[in-house]
Structure formats: C-alpha cells, structure tokens
Design a protein around this nucleic acid. Sequence first.
DNA 1: ACGTAAGCGAGACGGTACGTCTTGTCTTTTG
DNA 2: CAAAAGACAAGACGTACCGTCTCGCTTACGT
Lengths: 206, 206, 206, 206
Amino acid sequence: MRSNSEPKSTSAARGRPRSLEARSAILQAVHDLVSKGGYNAASIEAVAARSGVAKTTIYRWWPNRASLVLELLVETANAVAPPPAGSDPMRALRTELLLVAEASEGLAGHLLSALLGEAECDPEVRDALQQRIFTPRRHATAKVIRQAQEAGEIRKDVAPLMAGELLYGPLFYKKYVRQEHVTAAFVKEVFKQVMAGLRPARAPRK
Amino acid sequence: MRSNSEPKSTSAARGRPRSLEARSAILQAVHDLVSKGGYNAASIEAVAARSGVAKTTIYRWWPNRASLVLELLVETANAVAPPPAGSDPMRALRTELLLVAEASEGLAGHLLSALLGEAECDPEVRDALQQRIFTPRRHATAKVIRQAQEAGEIRKDVAPLMAGELLYGPLFYKKYVRQEHVTAAFVKEVFKQVMAGLRPARAPRK
Amino acid sequence: MRSNSEPKSTSAARGRPRSLEARSAILQAVHDLVSKGGYNAASIEAVAARSGVAKTTIYRWWPNRASLVLELLVETANAVAPPPAGSDPMRALRTELLLVAEASEGLAGHLLSALLGEAECDPEVRDALQQRIFTPRRHATAKVIRQAQEAGEIRKDVAPLMAGELLYGPLFYKKYVRQEHVTAAFVKEVFKQVMAGLRPARAPRK
Amino acid sequence: MRSNSEPKSTSAARGRPRSLEARSAILQAVHDLVSKGGYNAASIEAVAARSGVAKTTIYRWWPNRASLVLELLVETANAVAPPPAGSDPMRALRTELLLVAEASEGLAGHLLSALLGEAECDPEVRDALQQRIFTPRRHATAKVIRQAQEAGEIRKDVAPLMAGELLYGPLFYKKYVRQEHVTAAFVKEVFKQVMAGLRPARAPRK
DNA sequence: ACGTAAGCGAGACGGTACGTCTTGTCTTTTG
DNA sequence: CAAAAGACAAGACGTACCGTCTCGCTTACGT
C-alpha cells in the first residue's frame, strides 16, 4: 500500500502540480460520508461526487478505498490519541488506555472497524494497518511498560508486549469484536484488574 | 435476523415442504467458497451457482449474505469448540481457551472475521452475532469461572464476566483485530499471566 | 389453444368437479387487473393473488396468460358487439362498424391490443385469435355484404371478404396499429368514402 | 423516448466520446437476435452478451428494450421503404404501398409487430412510434395524394389523410392485426378497389 | 359407506431477465 | 502533465414472474 504523503523525490516536478485542495477535499468527503452513512456510504463514486473531484484523481493517488480510509484513520488517530508520554509510567499507561477507548467511540473507531472488514480480504490492508497503526503504538506502549518495570511497578518476568496484550485485549475485544460500547468505567476496571496481576508479588500498592 | 433452523411451531405445515437438500447444499457451497476464496468469493450468485440452487431459494430463507454465513458459523463453532464442561473448572477454562484459539485459525475464524466487517455496517448482523455467538459463550464461560471461584481458585472480588474479558480479550485482539496468527504458546502464556492476577492472594503459586 | 368452456363429452366426470366459482373469480380478476393497470398488471401471480385461487388451478385450465385473456376477450366481444343482423344490409354494416369501433375503445380494445403483442411471439395465440375472433366475424360481415350485393347496393365485382378489408382496415389500422382513439365521426367518414367506391357505377344513392 | 442519434449541440463534448462501435454492435445484435428468435429473444441481457457490450452501456443510451428496437426499426424502415417520390403521383402511391407491404414481410415487420405490443403498455413507446414512424410517413403520403388531386386523378372532396387511411388500412389490418401474410396480389387489388372509389366521377375507368 | 380420483389451496423450487449499483480502466478536452 | 468529465467492461445485487413440483385437504362419483 502506497504511502501518499511524501513529497516527490525528483528535483523539480514537471507538469501541473498535484492539487492539494483536491487531496483535502477528498479526505474531507470521506470523513463526512463515513460519519453520516457508515463505511459503505463512502464509495469511491460517492467520494468523487461529494468532493467535486474526478474518480481518476482518486485512483491516481490511492489504489483502493481501503487505503484512502486508512490515510484518514492515521491522521485522525494521531490527532485524537497521541502515543503515551510523561514521567509517571503507570499514569501514562492508564491515560493512554482511556484515550484509546474514547477515540474508539468516535470516527476513528468507525474507520478502524470498517478497515478490519477489508483487512480480512485484502492482505495489503492488513499489513498497512499493522505498520501504520498497531506496531508503532504497541511499541510505544511497550516502552512505557519497560519504564514501569524499571520503576518496580510491574513484574519483570512479563514481556512488555505481552503486558500490552493483557491491557488492550479486553478493550479491543469488547469494542471491535463484540462491537459493544466501551465506557470509562469498564476501562478503569480492566486496568485495575490487569495491574493487580502484573504488580510484583508481596508489594501490594495502596 | 431470522434463525432458520427451528421447525415450524404450527401443527401441519401447508404447501410443499422445505427442501433439506437445498439447505445443506447451500451451506456446503458457502463453506467451500469461503474456504477457497475468502468471504468475497461467497457471493449469493456464486453460492447459487455452486450449490445448484436458485438464487430465489436462498433469498427465501436468508435475508442477506451475512445471515447465511452466520448460520454456517454457528454450526461450525458448536461443532469445533463446544462450550466448556468438566469437573475441574481451571482445566475446563484452559481447554476452552485453547480450543477457541484453534478454531480461530480454521474456517470458523475466517467466517467470524468476515462477519465482523459486515456487522460494522449492519446492526442486524451485529445483534445476531451477539445473540447467537458471543452471549451464550460468554455466559457459559462465566459459569465455569464462578465454579472456580467456589473452589477458591479465583478471587471472588472479580466479576465472572470481567474475568472472561481478561482471558479472551488478548486472544481476540490479536486474532481478529490485529489479524495475526495465534499460537498455542501465546494462549498458554496469556492464561498463565491472567490467572496469576486472578488467583487469591493467600494461595501461593502451585 | 384449448377451448375451456365446453362441458366434458364423457358421460360422468369422476373426481371433484371443476369449481365454477374459481373460474369466474379468475376471469373477474383478469378483468379488474387489466382495467386498472393494463395487460402487464395481469400477471398470473397477480391474478392468483387477487382471485384467491392457487396458481396451479389457473395453469390446470389455461396454458398461459394469453389464452386466459383470450377467453375473457371472446366473452366480452360477443357481449359488446354481436355479429351484424337485420333486414337492411347497408344499415347492418354501418351499425356493426360503429359497434366495433365503440367496443375498441373499451376493455375489449385493451385486451385485443395486448393479445396482438403476444400473438407476434406465440403462433398458438395468433391462430386462436384468428379462429375465435377474426374469422367468424369476417365471415359474418361477408355474408351481409353478399346480401347488399344481391340488393344491388354493392358492386358484384368485389369479393365480399375484400370489401370487408376495405371497410374495417382503416378502423383497425388507426386503433390497433397507430393506437389512436377512434371516433364515431371517423368511422362514419370511412363508411361513406368506402361505400362511394363500392356502390355500382351510375347508380348514385342519395 | 430519447432520440439517440443527434450529435451534441454544444461545441466540444467533454469526457470520453461515445463509442460508435459499441452502438453499431448493439444494433447489429438486436437485428440478429430478433431475426433468429423473435422479439423475446432480444432481451437486454442477450443483446449485451452477443454484442460484447456491457449492460450499463446499453442502459446509458436507451431507457428500455422498446426504444432500442425502435431505433433499429427507424433505420431499417428508411433503408427499405423510403418515402414516396417521383413525377407520377399515382405511380408513386402504388409503388410505396407495395414497398411497405414487402418491408412488412421482412425484419421491419417483425420489429413493428413487436413494438405494437409494447406500445399498448407504455405510452412513451406509442408516442415515439407515432413521431418517428407513422406521422412522417402519413404526411409524406398525404403530400403525394394532394399532387394526385391537383392532377385530377383523385377527387378533391376527400381529405388526403383520410385517403391514406383507406389505402393503408387494409394492408396494416391484415398484416399487423390479423397477422396474416400479405402478398403483392392482395395489395394490388386493394389499390385498385380503393382507387376506384377515389377517382373523380367524370373520369372513366382507364 | 367407502374408496378413489380429480380439483383445489398453499407454497417451495429451478430459472430467466430485469434495472441498478459500484469497481477500476480508458479516452477525451481543459487548465 | 494533472485534473475534470464521463464512457466503458465487468459483475453482483435483490426483485418479479415464470411454469413446475409436492404436499394435505375437499368433494363427488363409483362401487
């Protein structure tokens, strides 16, 4: 799946330059259509019609609908739930979990949900999702978990990535597999129970 | 979404009776097509062609492709991973988790994956999945967890359904959201780590 | 095409006798449906639904829609424009022509129009129309024309059937080919002009 | 009903221009299918298959089967029986009548016959037939009749259009209503008898 | 009176064609 | 050379009827 954001590497692009208005009109149209009528409403045809852009222009830059939606998802996700950061790793983990849950209830949730369907059929979509969404975030999370381990807040005999699975699994399972709504209360309870298992033995906190 | 398996409750069905051969030919065709070419290959048109059944007959009994696939999924799931049972609740939980993981790598996994995509767009599919797949299994699991609590193997301050989320979340997250392969080793590790957190404080590790 | 009206020639029909209510309910339904929505509205399915009769019962007695409509047409035509009769042949011819024109503007016209379309594709329909509608009426007309010839009102060097063509041609051409409305004035003018040509030379009437 | 032949009036059509090969392949396919299997054989589906053109392309240019067949009819009719012309009006009329009769026995006859059935149900078809076939030809004939009246060959107290009805009625009645074959002998006899009535009283038979 | 033969309702079935929709490609002119 | 416009091939969609079939129930005649 192409990444469409990079500027041309060639020195001095010839001919008519790419229209940036077209690009943003397209992404805006995808946004609107998905918001209004779900993923299916955002057919390439409909996107072209709503954005006032020719179908060919869309196909010139994105190979299919999924990569188009993916681009919107990446932008949205980074805006709405940036990777965790901060001096207190446990707090950062909890905040991140809550932010992801919140984002899942919004447009980003819709987009991701829809892409999962496509990914099932199209391995390119699956790989792109992995590389652009899951892998970076999982590693960011693992880094924070490692910090928590250094600080003695999490047992060192759990692989950081595995700890991430335990933390995020229940949230994603409920939201994207069972497709139920996810509340802050649910996420907090998950965090509490998982951390109860990850904290070093004989060192009960609070 | 209709359930198509129950016999008529009325006393003496009038008219020509439903053809059972047609029904099983259809489900078989769905099975074959999904196995060979994925969910998209199982268009109603293709199912009709392969099964030698008229399209109208399919539409008579299933309102859309999703409910057709769902029916196959329910049958497959029950065959391949029946609800947990046995005298040793911990063993039953572990076995069930492994069975579900195994089933996820087979046809049932494909079917469920595909249905998740449809569910995103069609609330009827979502509800049907809940009622026919998730809810029964989650409650069966919760029941076993309650037995484990009675036996003192799991803390009593964790809601059984919540414990189920912790156990199954990582599996489903990896398989159906990230769409990675799931190994027995992964499932065993998840089971071990989650149970470490769920075991009562006084009970030293075995 | 079967004629469905005759009683069985065998002495005493065995089994349940044909339901006369069913027959008339069917014809009535055809009548209503054609009146309301044209020939296409009178699908076998619709006729069955409206008349409360099973499709099989219709197919038991009529091989197809056309023969069903034809039966209604024959009944209607004979009721609405019986063959010409009377002592004054010229008057009888004129009256008959006017009656046929009038009937053409009603249900019978619709039915015939529709059957012409079917006849184009189905030779059985064409033959049935010939035998049950056109041939009897053309010969009845020819007979009257022959009377007029005896009475010296029409030249004897014109074949009676040919004279019939000249008389009825313009009417049918306008009504069933061009599908325009036909007025009494038009018919009268046709009659006048055709008779002007058919009257014996040097014997102007009126 | 659209007329599909005219070029765009605007200066320089945008977008990909209409494929003329597609157009003629379609009409050719209609021709072949109707010739071989009658009007019913020329389903849109079959036309698409035989012409190697997509169904959508057909529907882009013709709203339904009837208008497609009509287009072929117009082309065929003009090729096979052009409007009457010549210095001798009586001769032109006779020739035209014979030509029309001859054309009626060929493909044009089939096409027209079939369209009459559609016209019964669809007023658009009826109007299109009127405007594209009947009206122009009837007026062309009326013009020649007027010439004959000027030349003293036909009485002036008969409206030219009415004279046309008398001439063509018997032919169309026999061919398109009764659906019998029409021979040159029949047409000649009709011409003779009708003209006998239309010739001025003073003009003795030739 | 009773069996048996047909008529009848209901409705499932294998088909065909419909007209619409979307996909992704192509061929033009315009900027 | 990009973009807009829009024609094109392909193919699935869900619907409408077709004409056939298999049921179980009804009606009347023949023993």
